[in-house]
Amino acid sequence: MWWDLWWNRTLKHTRGHLVEIMNSRNILISNLTFRNSPFWTIHPVYSSNVVIKDMTILAPFNAPNTDGIDPDSCTNVCIEDSYIESGDDLVAIKSGWDQYGISMARPSSNIVIRRVSGTTPTCSGVGIGSEMSGGISNIRVENIHIQNSAAGIRIKTDKGRGGYIVNITITNITMDKVKVPLRFSRGANDHPDDGWYPKALPKVKDIFITNLVSFNSRKAPVLLGIEGAPFEGICMKNVSLFGLGPTVQWNCEHISGFVNGVSPSPCPLLQRNISLTCT
């Protein structure tokens, strides 16, 4: 009924998270199956020392905003050994929304996501943002398998967000039938109210992507930074995208970085060598 009311625009209240843990520490969620959440499925917020493992999360593919696991303004988090089917991101890291996230200044940091697999036909396997105004740093994503999905790895932000996304490591990723393997996007045009600050620009820097293979890709990566706040230090090594036509080109703006062993050839904004900072 949640989704019928949502699509009909007759829902008078927000939809609830299936499990939301706030202002807590030393949390273990494991060995459970969660089905049909009306909104985000597992949402730890303002918490630390959180382990979420051996989970099965299932939502209808056409159910909006049914993210699997969303650590939000949390530190020291491990998400591992889980399978997720969702109508939104499988895992999304967040830290507050526009002026509210900036004023709270509660970052998400020291988060490991590993051995997670799943499908989302409308969103991404692992998303960072778009609510990231409190800052996101020191994230490691490894040994992930994504299939039949709209995007593989996605970084989402916008003018008005402020905050930062820095020191992100993404390694040993396998994708199959993922439409856009890598998508760094801007311009969500999604704000909580009219009080957001247009001059609050996010900082995105030091994104390390290694040992990524995508089979049956349909579109080249889309890497779009923000004018006046380019995404810097995007470094890729051993990235292979199979299935793209020979004339398909990467879509890049306002980014900089280095690549080594990336095919098909990336955009010229990513120089074809690896600097010491990328290792």
Rank of each mutant, 00 (worst) to 15 (best):
I57A: 08
I57N: 04
A59E: 06
P60F: 03
P60V: 04
D67I: 11
P71G: 05
V77K: 07
D81Q: 12
E85M: 10
D88E: 11
L90F: 02
A92C: 08
I93K: 00
K94F: 08
S95A: 13
S95R: 05
D98I: 00
Y100G: 09
R106D: 08
S109Q: 10
S109K: 15
V112Y: 09
I113A: 03
R115T: 11
T119D: 10
T122N: 13
I128F: 03
G129N: 00
G129F: 01
G134N: 03
G135T: 00
N138D: 12
N138F: 08
I139G: 00
V141Q: 01
H145Q: 10
N148F: 04
G152S: 01
G152Y: 03
I153H: 11
D158H: 07
K159C: 07
G160Q: 07
G160L: 04
N167K: 04
I168R: 02
I170W: 15
T171K: 15
N172G: 12
I173K: 06
I173V: 13
T174C: 13
M175N: 03
D176Y: 05
V178K: 05
V178L: 10
V180S: 04
P181F: 13
P181M: 12
F184P: 04
S185M: 12
R186H: 15
R186M: 15
G187Q: 07
G187I: 04
G187K: 11
A188H: 15
N189M: 06
H191V: 10
